[in-house]
Amino acid sequence: MNSQATSGHNAAIKRPCLGPVQAVVFDWAGTLVDFGSFAPTQVLIDAFAGFAISVSMAEARLPMGLAKWDHIKALGQQPGVAQRWQEQHGHAMSDADVDALYAAFLPLQIEKVAQYSDPIPDAVRVLEHLRSRGIRIGSCSGYPRVVMDKLLPHAAALGLKVEHAVATDDLKAGGRPGPWMALANVIELGIRDVRACIKVDDTVPGIEEGLAAGMWTVGLSLSGNEAGLSLDEYRQLSEAERALRREAASTKLAQAGAHYLIDTIADLPAVIDAIAERLQRGEQP
């Protein structure tokens, strides 16, 4: 009798999710808004400069996707930055120093986030497309709540509206690369199966987040942190230059485990169709 009950339980666990796609959970900077993801990186550079430490854009981008306190700590642990901090301040960066940097960073980020956060081309159109298909729209971010409270009304005024948004400090469990923010969207939106969800992100921690939550993952190769291009720079690239940028970013996101890679959110509807077909065939993330 016990054996039969266990067998039935296992059969239920293994039952495939046959679709359709129920929800898409988006990142914000570099995914929905802020082509090239400059708001978090430039403000971090400015914050470090206030402590007499120069940080390059390439250095600032390496930990992108983490919660901002964790991002600052990881940035300070990079060998070059750590050496400059030691030389300038006479000691290794401590958690108290991270606290001080974060305290300087946060008001700058609140002040400047809207300045950088225009919708990425076609983002509004794609979200309307999802609504027309009955697909729920969630989101999460490495930004803390005080920054999201500035960003969300700005984006909504420009036509970019989501059903739910989770900030990195909303949950006791923490942020990326753990699954918690993505799963908080699943709970809030009433999604019945995480296997029918898609996580869209431009960073490695964001892809890892979606995988940890049991979702399909889509990496953005050219609109976000990995390529690090402004919209004007992106438009001015030759096809050969664009291909080189795409290859470098795609390689990193693919190594993180992304199921699909696209240039920008404009290409997402075709991927949703492909995932829906795979779900109908019984395939799982």
Rank of each mutant, 00 (worst) to 15 (best):
G224T: 12
G90H: 10
D149I: 02
K112L: 03
L152W: 05
A248E: 13
Q4T: 09
T217I: 07
G80Y: 00
L152Q: 09
N185S: 09
E283T: 06
L261R: 06
A213I: 03
V204A: 12
F38C: 00
A60I: 04
L108Q: 12
S221G: 06
R131S: 06
E59Y: 03
A23H: 07
F26T: 01
A249C: 10
E111V: 01
D169Q: 06
D122H: 13
D27A: 08
D273P: 01
A29Y: 11
W69I: 15
S132C: 08
Q109C: 09
C140M: 12
L108M: 15
A103V: 05
G36V: 03
H71F: 09
G224H: 08
P119R: 11
L268K: 13
R245F: 08
A82P: 02
P144E: 00
A155T: 07
F51S: 11
D122C: 07
L171W: 15
G8W: 13
T203P: 07
L158C: 03
V55H: 03
Y234I: 02
A96P: 05
M215N: 07
I120T: 10
G210C: 10
H164F: 15
T168K: 04
L211I: 15
D27V: 02
D169N: 15
Y260M: 08
Q255G: 01
D263N: 13
S3T: 13
R278F: 05
I272V: 15
T203R: 11
L220M: 12
I272G: 03
R133P: 02
F35G: 00
H259D: 00
S132Q: 15
R125Q: 13
M215Y: 10
